[in-house]
Computed example of a mutant assay.
Amino acid sequence: MPKRQQARAQASAITPGRRAPGAEAPPADSVRALFGGHRLSPAQRRIAQYITDHLTEAAFLSITDLAERVGVSQPSVTRFATSLGFSGYPALREALQPLALSSVAGSPGTRVEDRRNALQAAVDAEIANLESMRRVFADTDHVLELGRELARSVPLTILGLRISVSLAEYFAYAAKRIHPDVRLVSRGGSVAYDALLQSREAGGTWVLAFAMPRHAKETLAAMRAARSTGLRVALITDQTLGPLVEEADVALTAGTGSRLVFDSYAAPGILSAAILQAMADADPERTQLRLEKYEQAAEQHDFFLDL
């Protein structure tokens, strides 16, 4: 597979509801647009959500009062403002106040409607991510070729650190059903290096790494360590550019849902399942044999409930 070949699934923004041409955006939509396009930490998302839900009040609070209402520190509020490109909290508050006044002049039911639809908006954003993934899957060559490469790598190493552990564990758990030697690396530092070196010495050729936001420096270090041992690196991430993508031999991009305090992973999940499918199809005889053996073991040891 050509080095650093990339398939990109871009997450598109969702605008809640359609407006007539020329109509002004509701204040809540304008606030979301102000916060959108920025990678916020969980604490910063709590601030953003509070401001969105309590716009008419929050836009006139002091930094001390806002921090107390949200339950964060004052420096967290300052970092939130600067992460949006403002010089500080006063500049952010100045930008919010016209939106708050516009909200007061609008429909009295707007804020209640916005709160009720916050979770629906998160689902809509994930639907957009899946639609992007669907368009990427119109050309399946990238996924099928990667599946063949990973199927041939014995052992196959799966790397996922910090928040990315959950996706790596899912992939490794399923891959073990169809692949003879799958090794999960979920700790960074020298522990990761040892595992990667052992995998290469045992004959492995590939590492599949997961890197979801916030992207850990440990992940980049582990990817570089893998390449230094002679392993090739396939990466599943939400980024299309940056040091992680540059370090990968193959990068597949899937958008994450960022409307809630913590990210959701509908698109990375379906991309992972597609790669597993490609691995299964790459060696159908081995896949069938291993699945049959697993089912026999499951029945013998009564692994599952009969529902």
Rank of each mutant, 00 (worst) to 15 (best):
E57T: 06
P26Y: 13
R39L: 10
L61V: 07
E57C: 15
I63H: 06
F60D: 09
H38G: 07
F60Y: 02
P42L: 03
D53N: 11
V31Y: 00
L66D: 07
I63V: 08
Q44V: 07
T52P: 01
L40H: 10
G37R: 11
S62D: 10
H54P: 01
Y50K: 04
Y50S: 07
A58T: 05
F60V: 12
L61F: 08
I47L: 12
L40G: 00
L61I: 14
D53G: 06
L40V: 03
S41M: 06
S30P: 01
P27I: 01
F35K: 06
S30L: 09
T52F: 05
S62N: 04
S62M: 14
F60N: 06
G36A: 12
L34Y: 00
A59Q: 01
A58K: 04
S41K: 05
F60S: 06
P42H: 12
S62I: 00
A43S: 15
R45N: 12
T64W: 10
S41R: 13
A28W: 07
Q44L: 08
A28K: 05
E57G: 01
D65N: 09
A33I: 11
L34I: 00
P26K: 02
S30W: 02
L34W: 03
R39Q: 13
V31P: 04
R46H: 08
A48R: 03
A28I: 15
P27N: 01
R39W: 14
G36M: 01
A59R: 02
I51P: 01
D53F: 13
L66Y: 08
S41A: 09
A28D: 04
T64H: 09
F35Q: 02
S62Y: 06
T52A: 14
E57P: 05
H54G: 07
A58P: 00
R45A: 09
Q49F: 15
R32F: 07
L40A: 04
E57S: 05
G36Y: 02
Q44R: 11
A28Q: 07
D29I: 04
P42F: 12
D53I: 01
A59C: 04
I51V: 06
I51W: 07
L66G: 02
L66F: 11
T56R: 10
L61S: 07
P27Y: 02
A43Q: 10
A33N: 04
R45E: 05
D65I: 03
I47N: 07
S62V: 03
R39A: 12
R45L: 05
A28E: 13
D29H: 13
T64D: 07
Y50R: 03
L40P: 02
H54F: 09
I63F: 12
I63R: 10
D65W: 13
P26G: 04
P42V: 11
T64Y: 08
R32C: 11
E57L: 14
R46Y: 01
L61M: 14
Q49R: 15
P27T: 06
S30H: 08
I63D: 11
S30G: 15
A48C: 01
S30I: 12
A33P: 13
A33Q: 15
S30Y: 13
A59G: 05
G37T: 00
A28T: 13
